[in-house]
Design a protein around this nucleic acid. Structure first.
Ligand code: SF4
Ligand code: SF4
Lengths: 133, 133
DNA sequence: TTAAATACGACTATATTAGTCCAGTTTATA
DNA sequence: TATAAACTGGACTAATATAGTCGTATTTAA
């Protein structure tokens, strides 16, 4: 199937919400409550966005998250990278299991699949989170 | 994740193989052997292609499959439709579980997600199996 | 009559995704 | 300085989707 994961959706929802709040600090709990997103899961997603320096966090009472990148600087492609690792439309294009496909030797669709991956990447690379309005 | 299923890959591999064989009849077993694809699984994929009138089949001894559509008439989009059902990049865009997302009410990314789905569909619609060369 | 082939439904196994639990650390403020 | 609100992070479980298997039936050329 070709489907975005909930984690990616949660990231998009959160980024949009945080961006709307201007410079106000937003907590994971607020987002979790507002959008019915499981708190622990959301927390992990936000932590990843922090590690990638998309968000900035403050711990402790009155802590929370703040945007430190513009939404138009974050591509859907990079967001997926951050959350799920490098996208690969087939097994043999994913570094982790690049050698796992037992068809590989005789496969007759590798090159078109490569092209397809390239085109999809391109679409995602030019789709900015700011477009999500 | 965004990944094509093996079934779709098997369909592409098979179609390309059958097309290369010109009007010769090709059996599931031949494809299964040549490409190391599990026979039973492949058989089901070919049966679906037959139901969609992409392939024609003959039963019995010397039976097998033959193309009855041009590869440039089959879009990747339609192939995915046939094998996996209508593609939906998120839950709420899939008829089957259109009402399952408990975020739906407050969701702030529906409209951009819609656009994204449209653009992806468009990409897949214009990607013909014949491009897979 | 037999063997090679498709047809099809039900089943199991594996992998991925989604979600939970728990035990931290940090920090404002009462 | 005690407390509670918040982030951090690893290990775990549950749910779902994908991949593959099994068994049986049907068709048909030779
Ligand atoms: S080698 Fe061919 S069949 Fe195997 S993953 Fe790559 S494209 Fe798919
Ligand atoms: S409603 Fe929003 S969160 Fe739910 S599936 Fe649709 S896009 Fe995703």
């Amino acid at each position: 199937m070709v489907r975005f994961t909930k984690k990616v959706e949660y990231a998009l929802i959160s980024l949009r919400h945080i961006a709307n709040a201007k410079d106000e600090i937003i907590t994971a709990k607020q987002i979790s409550n507002k959008f019915n997103i499981p708190y622990e899961l959301l927390a992990k997603v936000l932590q990843k966005l922090k590690k990638e320096k998309i968000l900035e966090s403050n711990q402790g009472v009155n802590g929370g998250y703040k945007l430190i990148k513009q939404l138009n600087e974050i591509s859907l492609s990079s967001l997926i990278d951050v959350i799920e690792g490098k996208l690969a439309i087939v097994e043999c294009l994913h570094e982790k299991d690049i050698n796992d496909c037992f068809i590989s030797d005789t496969c007759n669709i590798k090159s078109p699949i490569n092209k397809m991956q390239y085109e999809l990447e391109n679409l995602l690379k030019h789709k900015m989170v700011s477009d999500f309005v």
